[in-house]
């Protein structure tokens, strides 16, 4: 069996005495789509914030690709190839869809500090940006400011922007939340397509999406890991049924 690409050991985060994430040992295998599920307030987003260094853990360590990243800065974690999306869609509101994606491409391909050159030089990234935008089905909105896009389309744009970095591992926080049925299907199909050569860890409330998409599942409640395994295993777990599935899937 291969080594996990991402693992945590005793990951803990307290907020003034309240333990939001409590001794989590997480192991994500390379190439997997791994779901992190759990009821509201379980600590999923906090986990993401810890993994990407947006929050510092109170205790515990994080390893990515064999390196201890516990003390790293968030931008440097992203540069290592661990890139996140946000639960509240994060776009650059007053930039167009094209510019949104281009900002991500620009980081990888240099010129980001060139303050004396014309922004015209960025046009050589346009074609790649258009391809990425087409990939998520936003072709007709290339020149639309992100702020004018519908919620579902903002999420799609966010994924296109993340993909522009071609990250080895993506963390998606509820990529389908608040979407129409069609949008959900489009995103699921997209995730299937982009998973090649990548590892994905996603928070997802929609269990049919999890069932169809994910290879491994970790269930979190009140900051602790309740169960782990594939869908069949986890969905048979009595405590999971009670704590999570029970309330929503009777």
């Amino acid at each position: 069996m291969s080594e996990p690409i991402l693992s945590t050991q005793g990951l803990t985060r307290e907020f003034r005495g309240f333990v939001a994430v409590n001794g989590v040992d997480l192991q994500v295998m390379p190439g997997n789509i791994h779901a992190l599920i759990g009821p509201n307030g379980a600590g999923k987003t906090t986990c993401f914030n810890l993994l990407t260094k947006f929050l510092a853990p109170t205790r515990g360590t994080i390893h990515f690709k064999g390196r201890d990243i516990t003390g790293m800065k968030p931008a440097d974690v992203a540069r290592l190839g661990l890139v996140r999306s946000f639960q509240i869609s994060a776009v650059f509101a007053h930039l167009t869809a094209l510019e949104n994606v281009r900002v991500a491409l620009q980081r990888g391909r240099g010129a980001s500090f060139d303050f004396w050159r014309s922004e015209e030089v960025l046009h050589n990234l346009d074609q790649r940006a258009r391809e990425l935008i087409e990939d998520v089905g936003l072709s007709e909105f290339v020149n639309t400011p992100a702020v004018q896009l519908s919620y579902g389309r903002k999420r799609a744009l966010e994924i296109a922007t993340t993909l522009a970095l071609d990250p080895e591992m993506m963390l998606l926080d509820e990529p389908t939340a608040g979407m129409t049925h069609e949008d959900v299907e489009r995103i699921v199909a997209l995730i299937r397509r982009i998973r090649a050569g990548r590892t994905i860890l996603m928070v997802e409330h929609n269990l049919s999406v999890v069932e169809g998409l994910c290879d491994a599942i970790t269930v979190l409640t009140r900051g602790r890991v309740l169960a782990e395994g594939d869908y069949a295993t986890v969905s048979r777990h009595p405590e999971v049924i009670e704590a999570y599935l029970g309330s929503e899937h009777v």
Binding site: A75, A78, V83, V91, R107
Partner: peptide, 14 residues
Amino acid sequence: RENEPRAISLGYRV
């Protein structure tokens, strides 16, 4: 200016 956390998450040392 538009979204600092997002810029950071894209790897910019803002």
